[in-house]
């Protein structure tokens, strides 16, 4: 499972780093960033999908690996 933030859509609501702080962080202006590479560590799948489904701007994309 991989995750990415569409920086064109992200407006810095911060729901992702509220809900999944191990996976997402904020830049100096509060916009969301994926921490590390885009691979979701095992055990973080639920937090990732929670973050994606709570993003008001629909800026988080989850890519399921084949």
């Amino acid at each position: 499972m991989k995750v990415k933030i569409d920086s064109e859509r992200c407006q810095g609501h911060g729901r992702c780093y509220d809900l999944a702080p191990d996976l997402f962080g904020a830049d100096d202006e509060g916009y969301g960033q994926v921490i590390g590479d885009s691979t979701v560590p095992e055990g973080q799948e639920r937090a990732t999908s929670l973050a994606a489904s709570n993003c008001p701007e629909r800026a988080i994309e989850i890519l399921q690996e084949a």
């Binding site: 810095g12 911060g14 780093y17 509220d18 904020a26 100096d28 202006e29 509060g30």
Partner: peptide, 9 residues
């Protein structure tokens, strides 16, 4: 942009 840094989490 001028305001954002003062209001981050």
């Amino acid at each position: 942009k001028l305001l954002l840094p003062a209001f981050t989490k």
